[in-house]
Computed example of a mutant assay.
Amino acid sequence: MWGTVRRWKQRRSTVNQFAVEYQTLLASQHLTSKTIANRSNCLRLLCEGIGTMRMSEVRPAHIAQLINTIWAGGRQFTARRVLYEAEAFFDQALLADLVDRNPASPVKAPPAKVARSRLTLELYQEIYTWASQHSQPWFAYALRLALATAQRRSDLVRMHKANIVDGHLHVEQFKTGARIALPLALQLNELAAPLREIIRESDDYRRPGSYLIRKKGDLPLGPESLSSNFTHARKAVTAGHNWGNKAPPTFHEIRSLSERLYRTQGINTRILLGHKRQSMTDEYNDDRGLTKDNYQRLTL
């Protein structure tokens, strides 16, 4: 009887049908909203490719074809993430007795080459100079704050004066949930001002407010505003530049530039960037002793 029910389930269930159950499982896990959104997007791409297939009929060749199609479309990192999500998806299907094996497991992840140009200090300075003259005042300030703190867009736009506690700017990273406390005495040599002074500058470009980067009414801006303004400024100062086979740098590359500059000053950039493992440097230490309620302090 059980074998008959099992075979019936396997013949009946499609990828799209199990995706509904899998989405519920993702929502029940202790994941950040950003992580759930990213994984849901990978699940959507998986369903777009093989959603109408019966679970039991999906073979490694089907997964490989989907991943290669995404990779060939220029989305190398997305292709890798979809493969990892497919493997987790079919692992759950195994537990639900919908498949006898995981068809994603034998598929090798495609190479994901870095296709974006690094941002140099010289180009950053050119962009900042242009922005100071032609952009909204908040954007020129955002460039300085980004270089001073090495944080992501989503964290920069959420920085609030209430986050300054005990001589530190506290950051709870939106993407990972990592908590770090940046000392107000932190100073990047190239900026010639400590973080304390750069925070004070937030009151110079507009009437004083609570958010460090803000629009009228003391309202925060969205991360997309940082990216679009950066792209506009970069295009203005690099008109006619040939980037070769790489894409031009984006606002996010300020984070990498900041890390590289701080590293030459001997700053612990693993803590600065909020990594458990510092893959961008030679340091691969586990972040031990960090609890949900504590911030890991960057020491100078």
Rank of each mutant, 00 (worst) to 15 (best):
A140P: 05
Y124T: 03
A131N: 04
D166F: 07
R214L: 01
M159H: 01
T176P: 11
P137C: 02
R196A: 15
R158K: 15
L156D: 01
Y205I: 00
I164F: 00
E197Y: 10
H160Y: 13
P137I: 02
L123K: 05
A142W: 05
R153S: 15
N163Y: 10
E172K: 14
V171R: 06
K161R: 15
N189I: 14
R214T: 05
L212A: 01
R207A: 13
E201R: 07
P194S: 12
T176Y: 01
R118N: 12
T176F: 04
A181E: 04
H168G: 05
L123Q: 07
P110N: 08
Y128M: 11
E201G: 12
H160F: 12
P137D: 02
P111E: 10
P110K: 09
V114W: 06
P194K: 06
E126V: 05
R206P: 00
I198V: 10
T120W: 10
D203G: 00
I164H: 00
F174P: 02
L186F: 07
R196G: 03
Y128K: 15
S132M: 13
A192Q: 15
E126L: 14
E201C: 00
Y141K: 00
P137K: 04
E122V: 10
H168N: 14
S132D: 13
K113T: 14
G177M: 03
V157C: 04
R179L: 10
P137M: 04
R206F: 01
L169W: 04
V157R: 01
K161V: 11
A142K: 11
R158D: 06
K113A: 12
N163F: 10
L188E: 09
R118L: 12
R200L: 14
